[in-house]
Amino acid sequence: MPQLVKLFQFTLSGLTTGSTYALIAIGFSIIHNATGIVNFAQGEFVMLGGMFMITFYGYLKLPMAAAFVLSVFAVAIIGLLLEKTALRPSRSQEVLNLVMITVGASIFIKGLSMAVWGKSAMTLAPFSGEDPILILGAAIMPQSIWIFGITLAVVAALSAFFVKTRTGKAMRAVAASRRSAMLAGIPVNRMIALSFFLSGALGAVAGIILTPVTTISYDAGIMLGLKGFSAAILGGYGSMIGAVAGGLLLGVLESLGAGLVSSEYKDVLAFLILLIVLFFKPGGIFGKGASRRV
């Protein structure tokens, strides 16, 4: 049965990276739902999360929990600043122009990060040891369990936020109809700012939990962002369940592809899947059908 164990092993490690793709994809979705734009700086949020954690925890030796919270908060504030200082004041509020601003912001953040943290890849010690745990013959790293657990907690908390709280419902209302939300008295601009804050926080969490597994460098954001974007498309852009399903599926397919075919093609596979989805089912797994009247 070693073949079966191998498959199980690949699936587990796929689910690990897939969890972080899911978090990145949710970040894309939240901003898309509030504003209609694709935020190409989403990947930089992930990179920044890892970098801040390394700074606070690795260098400044803050307690892990404090460093975690501080890093998430720092990137959330950066998300907020992106909205308030770059997108809001833009004279044109055309979607395409706003998207280009996020591309510019992404390049800016990347450059600044290179100046601050240097060019070499950095890493972080796993949160609790490196002794693998054996499940059904497959080895699972303790960090993977952290990744699953934290992702699950974040997704559960977010779901509750959107369904139970006044602010969460208001964010869904803005996503449903911005105009209707304004007429109901919902401060739409504040909800948009909040969506950037949340997406920054989500990206940061993904970066922090992923760094001990993959290392992080100033230019890691683009690839991570594109993976999260592909996951969002795969699941159905704008849908939270879709983002989670798309993230996990992409992670597993990538890992199986790398394990069974060749790891050379790992990244190619993600984009191949993206293209296949766009060709045959542009709405994604949980999407609302392909056609939309304009």
């Binding site: 006044r166 419902k169 208001a170 869904r172 209302a173 996503a175 449903a176 109809s177 105009r179 209707s180 939300a181 007429l183 109901a184 008295g185 919902i186």
Partner: peptide
Amino acid sequence: IQVPETDKIFPPLTVLENLEMGAYL
């Protein structure tokens, strides 16, 4: 407060949630 002609409700939200949003402020 205006009740518009089109785009007057939040279709994906429940009826109860729609009412609740009217009292947001």
